[in-house]
Amino acid sequence: MCTERFLTRLERVFARLDREPERPAHIDVPVMSRHRVVLFAATLAFYAAIVWAVLITSWLVRLDWQLMFFRPYQQWPEVHAFLDYYVVLGQRGPTAVMVAAWLGWRSWRQHTLRPLLALGVSLLLLNVTVGAAKLGMGRLGPHYATSIGSNEMWLGGDIFPSGHTANAVVTWGILAYLASTPRARRWLSALSAVTSLGVGLTTVYLGTHWLSDVLLGWAAGLLILLALPWFEPLIARAEAWILSLRDAWWARQSAPAASPALGPAPAGGLPSATASVGASPLRSPAQDPATARDTSVAARSARPPLHLSSGPHSTRSERIPVTPAGSRRPPHSDRAPRSTTSARPVAGG
Rank of each mutant, 00 (worst) to 15 (best):
L215E: 02
A220H: 05
G349N: 03
A41P: 12
M32V: 04
A193G: 09
G200E: 01
F69Q: 12
A25V: 02
T295S: 13
R335K: 02
T340G: 11
A166D: 03
A193C: 10
S33T: 07
A302K: 12
L201V: 03
S196F: 08
A279D: 13
T274M: 12
R114H: 14
S122E: 07
D288H: 09
L63F: 04
K134C: 05
L282Y: 08
V194C: 08
L116I: 09
Y47V: 10
A325H: 15
A273Q: 08
V13D: 04
R106I: 07
P324T: 13
I148M: 15
L222I: 08
T315A: 11
Q91H: 12
G326L: 02
Q253N: 07
R12N: 15
R328F: 14
A49K: 05
L83D: 02
P94M: 01
R328V: 14
P331Q: 11
H307Q: 15
P256E: 09
G120W: 00
V277L: 06
R139N: 07
L155N: 08
V54P: 03
R106Q: 11
L228R: 05
R237H: 09
D28N: 07
A292P: 07
A261I: 14
A219M: 05
R246W: 10
D158I: 15
G157H: 02
R316K: 10
A267T: 09
L119H: 09
A184V: 06
V87C: 06
P115K: 13
Q110L: 13
T181E: 01
L211E: 00
H143Y: 10
G173M: 04
K134N: 04
A325L: 14
A168H: 02
W241Y: 06
L123Y: 09
L243A: 13
R19F: 13
G207L: 00
L103F: 04
F160M: 07
M32R: 11
R12K: 13
L7R: 13
A290D: 11
L119T: 08
S276V: 10
F6H: 12
S192C: 05
A299H: 11
L225K: 00
G217C: 05
V88Q: 01
R114Y: 13
V194F: 04
S244Y: 03
G263E: 15
A49E: 08
T341V: 07
F69A: 14
A168V: 03
E22V: 14
V38C: 11
D334P: 02
R303M: 14
A53K: 05
A193P: 07
L63M: 07
L119I: 09
R12D: 11
G268C: 09
Q66W: 10
S122Q: 06
K134V: 03
P289V: 01
R16P: 07
W250C: 12
S327C: 10
V170M: 00
L126C: 08
A258F: 09
T195C: 09
T95H: 10
A166C: 08
L119Y: 06
S180L: 06
L55W: 15
L63G: 06
G268Q: 13
D334C: 03
W65M: 03
N151M: 06
V13R: 05
A132R: 07
G90I: 03
A343F: 15
L225V: 01
I174L: 06
L10V: 10
S254G: 11
P115E: 10
